[in-house]
């Protein structure tokens, strides 16, 4: 099937919500392996894994602990290099990329973590702004973006609150806003709802669903939660570092 990719012309930091009609491969992984340790202590986290992720996808990675979900997310997010295999992001191979290239690519990706990883001494606004500061976005633009994202995740009233005063659900919403501030091409979420109660879990998932639907941003999340996975368009099951099933 021919897929047509329509993109607006945008500068480095396009306004939130660029249009992606449908869908080229964002990620292609060919025979990716990742091995930790040496000698007798070798652990094979990923084993000859092949995977293609199309732009605009909303994908859940499921599997037991140690199945390789987090390692896979780290490789996709340029945090880890595969031991072997090809990793193509938008058609370009990053398997042998330098540290600097990986670093620059990480700025194209939004990360959401189970433990939020917010800076406690900064308020909501500054936490969200931090990512944009790192990537060098100009101040007027980033301030405007930050406030709009904070509004989108429903935390306008808390913009100047220190993050330690927030509930866990609110913290995760801050983390989502932070992940979006650079207008990423991919959002990687590692167990984003694991530390949340059911109400907050629903909130977070509805925000992610809406983001995917309205902006077309590709979201890949690792989860143990079947309920969460079922919200996604595609579910990949991992076991022992291999993709064993797809739904």
């Amino acid at each position: 099937m021919t897929r047509i990719l329509v993109k607006k012309q945008y500068n480095r930091f396009p306004p939130h919500g660029f249009a992606v009609n449908q869908m080229a491969s964002l990620i292609e992984m060919l025979a990716i392996s990742k091995v930790y340790g040496q000698g007798n202590g070798v652990t094979k986290a990923l084993d000859n894994l092949d995977l293609t992720v199309e732009e605009g996808g909303f994908i859940a990675l499921m599997g037991p602990s140690g199945s390789g979900k987090t390692t896979l997310i780290h490789i996709m997010g340029f945090v880890l290099k595969p031991t072997s295999g090809k990793y193509l992001f938008k058609g370009k191979d990053y398997g042998e990329a330098s540290e600097k290239t990986l670093l620059e690519n990480r700025r194209r990706i939004g990360f959401i973590f189970q433990s939020f990883h917010l800076l406690p001494m900064l308020n909501v606004r500054k936490n969200v702004e931090l990512t944009a500061m790192i990537s060098g976005m100009r101040k007027p633009e980033r301030e405007e973006r930050v406030m709009r994202l904070i509004e989108q995740v429903g935390l306008r009233e808390k913009a100047d609150s220190k993050v330690y005063n927030l509930s866990r659900g609110q913290m995760q919403r801050v983390a989502i806003a932070r992940a979006l501030v650079n207008n990423p091409e991919l959002i990687l979420a590692d167990e984003p709802t694991a530390n949340l109660d059911s109400e907050n879990r629903e909130n977070i998932m509805s925000i992610l669903e809406r983001l995917n639907r309205e902006t077309g941003v590709t979201i890949i999340l690792a989860t143990h939660d079947e309920h969460v996975a079922n919200k996604c368009n595609r579910i990949l099951y991992l076991e022992n570092g291999r993709l064993i099933r797809e739904a």
Partner: peptide, 18 residues
């Protein structure tokens, strides 16, 4: 104490100099 925050800065693309 800021391992989480510093880590995320690194993951988000903060370089070593920063």
């Amino acid at each position: 104490e800021e391992l989480h925050g510093i880590t995320v800065m690194r993951v988000m693309g903060a370089n070593r100099r920063d």
